[in-house]
Write a protein that binds this DNA or RNA. Structure first.
Length: 787
DNA sequence: TACCAGAGGAG
DNA sequence: AAATCCTCTGGTA
């Protein structure tokens, strides 16, 4: 039996006269297919002020009046019907108002919302094509693993003699292209004499643009990927194209690239041929010091990729030496090939998320956590006849931002070194609390269970009769995830196992964002009370774990939110402590509600605890885990981080303070000698707001502002990489963007006293040496001794 | 020296 | 456009 397999890549709607036609862009085994849907109409709901027949009747009359009074309204409203829906947990009758065209919705919903008998209008803000996907049960990206999708990556190089290029003046020099059918190209306007098989020379810049667009069409590319194409490559091509008289018609329907506002940033939308920008995806997925293409490539594949300083680019383009130009082409080519390689590694998770939350790939890949949870809930609400709450108004958002609540509990650690440590943590603490306590805006403080349900620590109770919507959705996610994990264990085929793993990851991401969603001020299903109760119950369970661990003879070294690090004085070996741990675990799990479980997470022969959220452990195999310390922070120089790491290793593996000290001494010698490379000294700090709005300017802002005078731009979110140089004045005065610093021009005192020493002394002090003691203890541990 | 703004991590 | 808890630095008065 042949199944009609196809994969929904994108959906939109177009207007044809008064009609709105949905277009579904499919990839099929044979090629592409566009399905047009003409009979689906936009609709929204009107909720009557009072839940009564009479009020509904009056509301209908009011709407009919509206139609008679406003000549244009008749064809716009096609149908009004009374339907039953669930409104904040209760079944009520509401009006479903069907209209002709999505553009009619904004005015109609406002007019109807203002009627005497109308409480509110709902679901009038669900985008039309997305509405269709939900209502018809379509699953975007379904079968993505069964149909070979053609993917192409591209990248542009732009002439930038004054720093940031300006489309008005600065030409695009190269467009590089690499696809999954093994075609690689760099389009450019010069370099014909070079022996490079991927190079295609165009007679001029406009021709180059046309050739690129043609190639994408010829090759029938399904997904176009870029690295920062949303905010650089595509806006630049578009603007430059406007000047050159070339339209960037990359759409499957030959439509132009459309730039959309997405919060602070842009999104470059290509109809029917999703454009995926890997930059926001990698920022979401990895925590790195910087997010240049080269950094991400290194992180993913452990290989260096050729890089060229943007300030060298115009020189190389203008260079007399053909080798410079050739290198530039090789660099440009590698940008596209590495972008493609990264895409192949990261897209599967995007496909899974898109399937799971039923949002087309383009939108889904740009959705933040809250947005993802919300889209999943919207489609699950439809299946159950639950009305989707409206987005909060700006005033409501502000009000919500004002209200705070108490979150997780963190145990004050017993500072210093500990041996034979066991770690326990709750498996998905918050999701399991939501599920086992039925925490939901529709079950909170219900009338029906007022007398019987026990109170949570916040004083609220949750319905025992009816399952809450969000707990139900969450439970399904978690059950599916456990099922997949079981399948993974049985699966022999590596490729299939990887697919299952990605699906499992998508489910985990969604489940873990649900608690945060309750407390998110812009959430439709916002409930501070729910968020607060979840956190309070979390504290209750971790406290209970701590108490019970003590009863069982454990010493609690540390704990945070859902985890505890324990040891015991009577256990000198791993086996001893593990047998106690087993008993403890069995007993505590008997007392916990069904969905909740404390798990054994690991055994560590030794660990050092500095402060809350800052500690390091070594496992039986010598693997070091560091949390919160400088080693883990992007805003510390590599030299300090690596030295701290080595010191931790010496101390945890060998308890050898002498060795640690000699490591530090050697690093200090290197710093003083001036031989340390800039790369090891670079500090990476993000600009988290509009650069003009800083009240206090730290070194990274000072460095950025100096660079701005030389034509650099620092939009919100950019990462400043700077060096503390030999210049005079404050630290900020000395801070310069790494691009402008020559090797060797760094302040050794700063790197010794403000980077390396604080990072390593933190560890040595936690061993029991106070700073005074260190000074009094002879040469070996004093600050002087390091110098 | 005390305080604050700012950053980035943990879970 | 997910929450809160927490530590630490550099600038400023």
């Amino acid at each position: 039996m042949t199944k009609n397999i196809r994969c929904l890549l994108d959906a939109d709607y177009i207007s044809e006269g008064e009609k709105a036609v949905i277009r579904l862009f499919y990839k099929t085994p044979e090629g592409r297919e566009i399905v047009r849907v003409e009979d689906f109409k936009p609709y929204f709901y009107a909720v009557p002020k009072i839940n009564s027949e009479e009020c509904i009747e009056n509301l209908i009359k009011e709407i009919e009046d509206l139609i008679t009074k406003n000549v244009g309204y008749f064809p716009k409203i096609r149908d009004i019907s009374v339907v039953e829906r669930i409104y904040f947990g209760k079944k009520i009758k509401v009006l479903k108002i069907v209209v002709t065209h999505p553009k009619d919705v904004p005015k109609l919903r406002n007019d109807i919302a203002e009627l005497e008998n109308c409480k509110e209008v709902m679901e009038a803000d669900i985008p039309f094509a997305h509405r269709y996907i939900i209502d018809s049960g379509l699953v975007p990206m379904e079968n993505s693993e069964l149909i070979k999708l053609k993917i192409a990556a591209f990248d542009i190089e732009v002439y930038n003699p004054r720093g940031e290029p300006q489309a008005e003046k600065d030409p695009v020099l190269m467009i590089s292209y690499s696809d999954t059918e093994n075609l690689r190209k760099v389009f450019s306007t010069k370099g014909a004499f070079l022996d490079l098989d991927f190079l295609e020379i165009a007679s001029n810049e406009a021709e180059m643009f046309k050739r690129f667009v043609e190639l994408v069409k010829e090759r029938e590319i399904d997904i176009l990927v870029s690295y920062n194409g949303d905010n650089f490559d595509l806006p630049y091509l578009k603007e430059r194209g406007k000047k050159l008289g070339v339209k960037i018609t990359l759409g499957y329907d030959a439509s132009e690239v459309k730039l959309e506002r997405r919060g602070m940033n842009l999104g470059a939308k290509i109809r029917g041929r999703p454009h995926i920008d890997l930059f926001p995806i990698t920022r979401q997925l990895f925590n790195l010091p910087r997010y240049k293409l080269e950094d991400v490539y290194l992180e993913l594949f452990g290989e260096e990729k050729i890089d060229i300083k943007s300030s060298d680019l115009p020189k190389m383009w203008d260079s007399e030496n053909p080798r410079d130009l050739k290198l530039l082409f090789l660099y440009s080519m590698s940008d596209a090939t590495s972008t493609l390689k990264i895409a192949l590694a990261l897209l599967p998770l995007q496909y899974e998320l898109s399937k799971l939350i039923r949002l087309p790939l383009y939108e889904c890949s740009r959705a933040a956590s809250g947005q993802r949870v919300e889209h999943l809930l919207i489609s699950e609400a439809f299946k159950r006849g639950i009305l989707v709450p409206n987005k909060p108004s700006d005033e409501e958002v502000e009000r919500r931002q004002m209200e705070t609540y108490t979150g997780a509990y963190v145990v004050e650690p017993i500072k210093g070194i500990h041996d034979n440590i066991v770690l326990f943590d709750f498996r998905s603490l918050y999701p399991s609390i939501i599920i086992s306590h039925n925490i939901d805006p529709s079950t909170i403080d219900c009338e029906c269970c007022k007398a019987v349900a026990e109170r949570t620590p916040t004083g609220h109770h949750f319905c025992k009769q009816r399952r809450g919507f969000i707990p139900e959705v969450l439970e399904k996610l978690i059950e599916r995830r456990m099922e997949i994990k079981k399948l993974m264990k049985l699966e022999k085929d590596e490729k299939k196992r990887r697919m299952l793993d990605v699906e499992q990851q998508a489910l985990k991401i969604l489940a873990n964002s649900t608690y945060g969603y309750f407390g998110f001020p812009r959430a439709r299903w916002y409930s501070k009370e729910c968020a607060e109760t979840i956190a309070a119950l979390g504290r209750k369970y971790i406290h209970k774990t701590i108490e019970k661990a003590k009863e069982y003879g454990f010493e609690v070294i540390y704990g945070d939110t859902d985890s505890v690090y324990l040891t015991r004085k009577d256990s000198k070996t791993k086996d001893e402590i593990l047998s106690h741990a087993k008993k403890f675990l069995e007993d505590i799990n008997k007392e916990l509600p069904g969905a909740m479980e404390l798990e054994f997470e690991g055994f560590y022969p030794r660990g050092i605890f500095i402060t809350k959220k800052r500690y390091a452990l070594i496992d039986e195999y010598g693997m070091l885990t560091v949390k919160g310390l400088e080693t883990r922070r992007r805003d510390w120089a590599k030299i300090a981080k690596e030295t701290q790491n080595k010191v931790l290793d010496a101390i945890l593996k060998e308890k050898d303070v002498e060795k640690a000290v000699s490591i530090v001494k050697d690093v200090i010698r290197r710093i003083k000698s001036g031989e340390v490379s800039l790369e090891e000294l670079a500090i990476h700090t993000q600009i988290t707001r509009d650069i003009r709005s800083y009240v206090q300017e730290g070194p990274h802002i000072a460095a950025a502002k100096k660079a701005m005078k030389r034509g650099y731009e620092f939009p919100k979110g950019s990462i400043v990489t700077y060096i503390i140089t030999k210049k005079s004045g404050s630290i900020s005065d000395k801070a310069e963007l790494i691009d402008f610093v020559k090797e060797g021009d760094y302040d050794p005192d700063y790197y010794i006293n403000n980077q390396v020493l604080p990072a390593v002394l933190r560890i040595l002090e936690a061993l029991g040496y106070s700073e005074d003691e260190l000074k009094g203890r002879g040469k070996q541990l004093t600050l002087d001794s390091f110098s």
